[in-house]
Design a protein around this nucleic acid. Sequence first.
DNA 1: CGATTTTGACCGGCGC
DNA 2: GCGCCGGTCAAAATCG
Length: 591
Amino acid sequence: MATRGGLSFDPDHHSITRLIHHQAKTHFHNNQLKLQQILPRFPAPPPPSPPLMDAPVKSPPTTTIQFPVSHGDHGKRKVLDEMDFFADKNEGGGGGGRDDDEEENVGIEHHRLDFKVNTGLHLLTTANTGSEESGVDDGMSSIPENKRSKIEMAFLQSEMERMNSENARLKEMLDQMTNNYNGLQMHVLTMMHQRSDNQAGGATAEESKNGHDNGLLVPRQFMDLGFGGNEEGSLSPPEGRIGRDMPPAPDKDVVGGDEPCSESKVQKLAHSPRSVDQATEATMRKARVSVRARSEAAMITDGCQWRKYGQKLAKGNPCPRAYYRCTMAAGCPVRKQVQRCADDTSILITTYEGNHNHPLPPAAMAMASTTSSAARMLLSGSMPSADGIMNSNFLARTLLPCSSSMATISASAPFPTITLDLTQSPNPLQFPKPSNQFPLSFLNPSQNMAAAGSSAAAALLPQIFGQALYNQSKFSGLQMSSAQELDQGAHEHLSSPLPPSLHQACQQNQLSETVNALATDPNFTAALAAAISSLIGGGGGPSPNNGCPNPNNNNGNNNNNNNNNGNGNVTSSNNSSNGNNKLNSSGFQVN
DNA sequence: CGATTTTGACCGGCGC
DNA sequence: GCGCCGGTCAAAATCG
């Protein structure tokens, strides 16, 4: 490694760029030698590089070797040259800037290009891109030092650009393959699950009818990812059910939150004409999906719009619990509770209940599909038995194939609850680190990510947590008929400020990396939190709405109306993050 | 001024 | 029956 092709590589510097440079030059030199053997008609390249790099200098007339150089002499010659070598197809397509007098050389050029393409691996061939650079080597001795260094610099730059783009392409491909793999895995698992359900008599025809019990579910134009609109429609008045607008009685009936798993109610419903559906619905509505995510924000981004309707201090947790209901549609019964973990206040626990009865934006759909799938599977597994016995491992794998340890089921009543823990590290095999993956990632991973789309990351910071969840659900493969649809949705969701390439890189690479990084890299998490804080501008950062209150919740915990902490005045300090609440409600802001 | 948040009060289930 | 507790209501306050 120290020496190659007669050039010495200084191991002390460990300069990758030098190495690349050296290898490229070596390859090119070899190719040039072969060229000269095979195409004796063409004289050995006169020191072409200087003209190549220092544009204005006389360029050898029609010397074929120089031909590519003369193509796109518009300043960014490097790139054009590179493109030329790869795109002989494109070349034929009427390459801009080709002179007529050069036409006679076309055949020769193609011949030569073909040869070059066949001389080695694609990667190496591209390394030869600066074929004219060969002249760099050849004429190196006669070139002034500064010119030589210039040439080398330019070459290195072009090399790096090329490698970066290649790196991005490879990443893309790998991500797609990963997605496909996960999707297939999901399909297999869900089919197995379906079969086992059918055997156990548990997988209901209802679910199948509704198309909710397998991973092949069609998105249903974003409609009610939980139980179909039929159920919600049948149960819920079309509108005016939220908050003050809604008549009290129907609300409670519909929400059913007041009767935790009461069998009497289920039985009552079972006797009604809509018995099975209703019973399932009633139980379903009580099923809860809890998402644990490490976040300093007051609320994770799930794409929905929420309105806070209450806050209390729950027993055993000094952090207040906030109650939200979905406000994206008038009658949406979905509610969620947000509370920080008592043990680790950096963990935000979001518990969802119910199913949306309205269209959802893609980002929201991802979360909704994940949670509603979790709830459905939880119920489908738990309903037949009183204890809610089911194979949690299977469920976990089905929900989160990337990390089977991330989903846990709480057997504790009153509500069957499944917890998706996004605070744990996913299986590293699912997302190999870029640095291991791509030989050209001589940047450290964070740099790599930054290179992939740092600006995009900045633009997406408010969504990253949601995107983490989004990707999680994406890889779960639940509810989505194809990864493309999710991708599309994500593209729509992310589309605005990004150029296509960056957009795609961001979508397919960065976000998945982000998920990984979020779970694995504490530094990244910290940086992310800091960035979010700065974005929010509050600076106060980690004193979110539901952040643990100051320890002055004197009266302690167990007052009837816990939210007032006993004297009603303290609450304002508890909720001192008032300003934050506003932002929270958007559902697209991680506040 | 409408939308949202705050917050004290209220309701209902549950355990004793 | 009583108190605890989780959950919700709804008037007042706040925000944009």
